[in-house]
């Protein structure tokens, strides 16, 4: 299963048309990986639905400037896939893409049954959210605003990876706020946070 998923990922990441003219052609590779309905079906690729435009603009800028890492294996090479995708983007391109992507609908809330979440992990995740005040910046419903991303119903694997990377000073945010918040958080706590946020209702 994992092999198939990686193959899909590989294909979607490679699909940047060399001679794209129209905006639809240029944005197609974004949607191929991140999902045209706002949610991603590819491992470790974030859902972009419902993200605030200012947050998306900051991320696209950081990718273009090669300040945020997006390492992926292509053939036998590791590449900065998002830096490659945004190469040559003008400032106006960054604005156009972030405005467009911000209009994708938020990822759907997972149904309770049949994916009944483990109560203990949900309780642990909720307690950690309160303890670390995630919801004072990301909003009570974790929907994000302005420069702060929506995290509710984000992919669990992406959440866990991102939280670990912030804590370990690998994910470069705009400033050091997330690194500071996550400094004392353990791997097990990160797993519960990601579990809870991905299933947030």
């Amino acid at each position: 299963m994992r092999g198939i998923a990686s193959a899909v990922l590989l294909l979607c990441a490679l699909d940047r048309p060399l001679l794209a003219d129209t905006f639809a052609e240029r944005v197609a590779p974004c949607l191929a990986c991140h999902g045209e309905k706002g949610y991603s079906e590819h491992p470790a690729v974030p859902s972009l639905g419902g993200q605030p435009a200012p947050y998306l603009l900051i991320q696209l800028y950081l990718f273009r400037e090669n300040q945020r890492s997006s390492l992926y294996r292509r053939d036998d090479q590791m590449i900065q896939v998002m830096t490659e995708m945004t190469k040559g983007f003008s400032d106006d391109d960054l604005r156009t893409f972030s405005d467009f992507l911000a209009r994708l609908p938020p990822p759907p809330t997972p149904p309770t049954p049949p994916d009944a979440p483990e109560l203990a992990r949900m309780q642990s995740g909720r307690a950690l959210i309160t303890q670390h005040r995630c919801n004072s910046c990301h909003n009570l419903d974790l929907s994000g605003r302005e420069n702060v991303p929506r995290i509710s119903n984000q992919r669990e694997d992406f959440l866990a990876k991102t939280l670990r990377e912030y804590r370990d000073n690998i994910r470069h945010g705009y400033d050091g706020v997330m690194a500071s918040v996550l400094a004392p958080v353990s791997d097990a706590e990160i797993a519960d946070l990601a579990y809870y946020i991905a299933r947030f209702r």
């Binding site: 603009l57 900051i58 800028y61 005040r133 004072s136 910046c137 009570l140 302005e146 420069n147």
Partner: peptide, 20 residues
């Protein structure tokens, strides 16, 4: 001293400079 997440707390969150 940090307040629980609420509308009042939202006013206390970091403000980002525009990247461009």
């Amino acid at each position: 001293g940090r307040p629980d997440g609420n509308e009042a707390a939202a006013k206390l969150a970091p403000i980002a400079s525009p990247p461009l």
